[in-house]
């Protein structure tokens, strides 16, 4: 599974967004995309998830053009920053609905409920869950079709320390299972020991692409995150 990104661009008003960016992502990488607010982290992930239509550029995921959305969604699971679930309904209902749309067997719902420790909450309405639990359901939903690539936009946003660590453990588990993971964070210190590769975006430009050790010794880190 390889992701090829070539000249991917999305510009909003006042030159915000993402300048042309090109990179290749290999199977099994766990990539942290860091940068300040408005750097273009979420824009990049949302374009890969087909949430935002790029202005320019080309992306192929395992040889499939990103514009072929219905094929790509089986390859890519996207976990947005704010869980977008049907609040009125239970955890189980939400998972069953999406499993049905993926034409996945209902057994897969049971697997996800078990894998993500959601069995005790299966009949709880989404609106009654804590943010951490909602995020777990959100990730579980994204993994219903067992996609090889998982994109997480600010997965720890609004979570406390304990929940954040639990979520990072979950990302590690998924990584160990061979999935390619991209996630965004504006707190690089937190992902020091987690990511295998770091992409740094600044004002829509890719200013660093390399391993974590190299990044934390680089001038980019010094410049962007020095107190």
């Amino acid at each position: 599974m390889q992701i090829e990104i070539h000249n991917l661009t999305k510009l909003y008003d006042q030159n915000r967004g993402l300048s042309p960016i090109s990179l290749t992502i290999q199977k099994g990488e766990l990539i942290a995309i860091v940068g300040h607010n408005g750097a273009g982290k979420s824009t990049l992930l949302k374009m890969l998830a087909n949430w935002i239509i790029p202005d320019n550029g080309q992306v192929t995921i395992d040889g499939i053009d990103l514009r072929n959305r219905r094929a790509v969604v089986r390859k890519v699971g996207f976990v947005p920053e704010v869980p977008n679930l049907f609040d009125f309904f239970s955890v189980e209902y939400n998972l069953k609905l999406f499993a049905s749309l993926f034409q996945a067997p209902l057994l897969r719902v049971e697997e996800v409920l078990t894998e993500f420790n959601l069995l005790p909450f299966r009949n709880n309405k989404i609106q009654a869950l804590s943010k951490g639990l909602k995020q777990r359901v959100n990730i579980g939903r994204a993994l219903l079709a067992d996609p090889p690539v998982v994109l997480c936009d600010e997965p720890t946003s609004g979570l406390d320390f304990e929940m954040t660590n639990e979520l990072y453990r979950l990302l590690n588990t998924l990584h160990d299972a061979g999935k390619t993971i991209l996630f965004t964070s504006h707190r690089p210190e937190e992902i020091k020991s987690l990511a295998t590769r770091i992409l740094v975006l600044h004002k829509g430009n890719l200013v660093f692409d390399g391993p974590p050790q190299e990044y934390f010794q680089s001038a980019v880190h010094e410049k962007l995150y020095a107190l």
Partner: peptide, 8 residues
């Protein structure tokens, strides 16, 4: 957008 993350 969540529904469009499925093959519908």
């Amino acid at each position: 957008l969540g529904l469009l993350q499925t093959p519908i």
